[in-house]
Design a protein around this nucleic acid. Structure first.
Lengths: 347, 347
DNA sequence: CTGAAAGCGCTTACAG
DNA sequence: CTGAAAGCGCTTACAG
């Protein structure tokens, strides 16, 4: 490290001392002005300090404040994902945006950190004490999720976990989920209005708790109504793969009256495939998706889906964490946000 | 603030003092162990300290270190965007992922911060001294970009700006751009192989410097080859809008031999519209996009496009900033990353 | 109404 | 080979 140049650079920067010297007051007084504590401070002093702050371009150093107050004014978001591009999922980006915006409003920072599932322990976020509290977005098997949640919970900081089944053995942790079950129930009932005789549920082949909940709910409603229902798991990596899998399934079992996608991506791929084969939607086959996002609503056709409150989940996570930091415990340890269906033209 | 409970909570947390006491050494010794400076330290001491660190679950407090070293080990990324969901663009998410991953590897944190163009000055990132250096992603008019860049440049921290025209009057700033012009030239030449008689360039109606560069390059190549070329600006908010605009244009001016989208979104919308009208691609009309991303390549058809090095731009930004923090100036003040064309089936 | 002083957790040049 | 001490920038209870 180049210590000399660093010292020089720092010397240029205003701090409490240089402002105090410039204004002819103590650093305590400057600190009070900066923090808006003017109870009975003389107008003259206040104005003089303000002027010095402006003139010197003083910006309070959060490290100093942080050390003194033992607060970092910073929340760490760990996105556990095997892929380097851990921000492609619209659920993730919406949630991150909501969290980030809320924290910004409250003058808190968001430390964004993607980690591979096996490398959580090596992360500086875990090894060192950097933030006031954590948010966690997980992927992978139930086992890997449990391990990583426990790892963060063991760090002695408040923790908010998104889209995950609560683990009652852990302390100082709060779960925020969307009501996948409720949304799926509603969506399945909506589809039932078409009086289908048989249905095909198409979901990703990798484990995802939210998807399992949706399937369960679809299944309950459809089977409960006597609809012959099948589940197809496919590689959702590409639209072509999805289309091919569904196509193959239809080749073997015939055209279903309705295809319920586990998410919008699958539903859109199904629509494309059906379109290319000249199958009419919703006349011959109805199609539905799940986890729709406002900014994508206008993207393609008018898909019947269920909206994800990902943005609101991020906001809520920020709120709960900041409230928790002002007190000693979370008020509740689980929140479930509603998922509303969006009736479109496809089902 | 609940000072009492905070003190209690902190008391539980190990620090240099509690580890030193536990191991029966000085805090200086513990600090050296933590930082891997064991030059000639006795094996016994080293092991004793290691054991105490593990037993007490000590995690070094970065605030303390930061205050002492005048480093925060944190880079602030400001995404200036009018929309609350400032992370929807795949260019942005790829760049952020690259930056975040590189910084994480180097044990640096990324402070992610979306700001509305008019509220930059109110942001705590600007008002307070929170990070070691800044990265900036801008949107809006040339004027607004210039103002906001100058604002950050005035903060006395190294600054990296993405996808922006260099402003030579500013200090300690480095620009990282992708070669939109080069990629567009190459793409236009590729399209020329089809020997089109006329071409339609379709771009968003809002200002975006990168788009202007692409249009310029398309225009140069096509007009240079005697192709009758028109430019259509449209609301790219929804695929329907785009399709409608193109459709209308075709109604008035006839079907072009080739449609060059200013980005992939526009190209995909064009493909959908053409498909729905029974126009065959590429036989009747060739179509190309721009700014393709690896993880979306498999999403739809096989669009001819140009790949964006957004992820690599993020990585480079992190590298340059960390290097800059070790020295006194950026080596170069502008970098341009190559944009390669991806020949597909549509053009 | 204002300021002196202690101390948050850490690193490092220096003394022993 | 190890430790005492200074000090990074700040806040706050307390003294005057």
């Amino acid at each position: 490290m180049d210590f000399l140049s660093r010292e020089t650079a720092v010397a240029e920067k205003a701090n409490l001392h240089s402002v105090a010297a410039h204004a002819g007051v103590s650093i305590a007084t400057v600190s009070k002005v900066v923090n808006g504590i003017h109870l009975g401070m003389s107008q003259a002093t206040l104005e003089r300090v303000q002027a010095s702050i402006n003139e010197l371009g003083y910006r309070p150093n959060r490290t100093g404040r942080g050390l003194r107050t033992l607060r970092r004014f910073m929340i760490g978001l760990a996105v556990v994902d095997p892929s380097p591009t851990f921000l492609t999922d619209p659920f993730t980006t919406n949630l991150v945006a909501g969290l980030s915006n809320y924290l910004s409003e409250q003058d808190f920072g968001l430390l964004l950190h993607g980690i591979k599932p096996r490398q959580v322990e090596q992360s500086f976020l875990v090894r060192e004490n950097v933030v006031d509290a954590f948010c966690l977005m997980l992927s992978g098997s139930a086992n890997s999720r449990r391990t990583n949640t426990a790892m963060f919970a063991g760090l002695n900081h408040p923790l908010v976990v998104f889209q995950c089944k609560p683990d009652e053995t852990l302390q100082d942790i709060c779960y925020i989920n969307q009501d996948d079950r409720g949304g799926a129930l509603e969506l399945a009932k909506h589809i039932l209005l078409r009086e289908p005789a048989n249905a095909l549920i198409v979901i990703p082949d990798i484990f995802w708790p939210a998807i399992e909940k949706r399937v369960e709910a679809f299944w309950e409603v459809l089977r409960g109504a006597g609809v012959a229902t099948k589940v197809l798991r496919c590689d959702e990596h590409s639209a072509d793969h999805i289309g091919h899998s569904i196509s193959q399934h239809i080749g073997r079992h015939g055209l279903p009256d309705v295809i319920l996608g586990g998410n919008d991506k699958i539903a859109v791929a199904a629509l494309q495939m059906l379109d290319s084969r000249g199958v009419s939607v919703p006349d011959q086959v109805a199609v539905s998706g799940f986890n729709a996002f406002e900014q994508h609503r206008h993207a393609g056709g008018n898909l019947t889906s269920a909206s994800s409150p990902a943005y609101e989940m991020g906001v809520l996570g920020g709120k709960l964490l900041l409230k928790r930091l002002q007190s000693t415990a979370f008020e509740k340890n689980e929140y479930t946000l509603p998922v509303k269906i969006i009736p479109g033209a496809t089902a």
